[in-house]
């Protein structure tokens, strides 16, 4: 019975899930391109006129420190491809999409069923209430990894398309960290 409910809930969610997964994956794909632009094209130009430590000092000064914390803290290296890619995972747009998804699921699952008036029909069947809750939990256990996978798939596709993983950063992360420490 849980399986039947699970299949029905998955069917109900398939379009929102597809749209959100495409949004998340698409953003990560785009973020890979942004990363490539920053690390491979913009940063080398900046480094022609200033040292890495000076640049991070300017960017993360004052309110910028908050941005640095959001991006991953003091160990974040702007010239590191992998560090830049991780920023895509904590980007406010990602957080917003996940929040909207979580709120939508929380309000649309059990409460939504009651609100739409379909719960009465469902509970009139020979079905334990716990089964209904279990089916919703199973959906979340499946759907959340799917959304995470869509993020990784987006990153993978993006890096595949821009060929970034072959890119050699102009300054190695440890050097940048050392530069940052020396300035800070």
């Amino acid at each position: 019975m849980t399986r039947i409910l699970f299949a029905k809930l998955l069917r109900d969610l398939r379009w929102p899930l597809l749209i959100v997964a495409l949004l998340l994956g698409g953003f990560q794909c785009l973020w890979a391109k942004i990363t490539q632009r920053i690390v491979a094209e913009l940063l080398p130009e900046f480094l022609k006129v200033m040292r890495m430590g000076d640049l991070t000092g300017i960017l993360f000064k004052g309110p910028g420190r908050l941005m640095q914390t959001l991006m991953g803290g003091e160990t974040i290296a702007l010239n590191s491809t992998l560090d830049m890619l991780t920023i895509g995972y904590v980007h406010p747009l990602m957080q917003t999409i996940f929040c909207v998804w979580a709120i939508g699921r929380a309000s649309g699952a059990i409460a939504g069923e009651i609100d739409r008036g379909t719960m009465e029909l469902l509970l009139a069947q020979p079905l334990a209430r716990s089964r209904v809750v279990l089916a919703h939990l199973c959906i979340d256990i499946l759907v959340i990894p799917i959304l995470c996978l869509s993020l990784w798939a987006g990153t993978w596709l993006g890096t595949f398309l821009v060929g970034m993983l072959q890119f050699n950063a102009p300054v190695a992360p440890f050097q940048m960290g050392a530069a940052a420490n020396s300035t800070g």
């Binding site: 039947i4 029905k8 109900d12 008036g117 020979p126």
Partner: peptide
């Protein structure tokens, strides 16, 4: 077998899918 007074059905289903869903729930 119960027919509610204030009827709300799964609007995203066809009649056949709705019947099949509830029939399967009943085993």
């Amino acid at each position: 077998a119960y027919l509610p007074g204030e009827l709300r059905l799964y609007e995203n289903m066809t009649g056949r899918q709705f019947i099949a869903f509830l029939s399967k729930l009943r085993g």
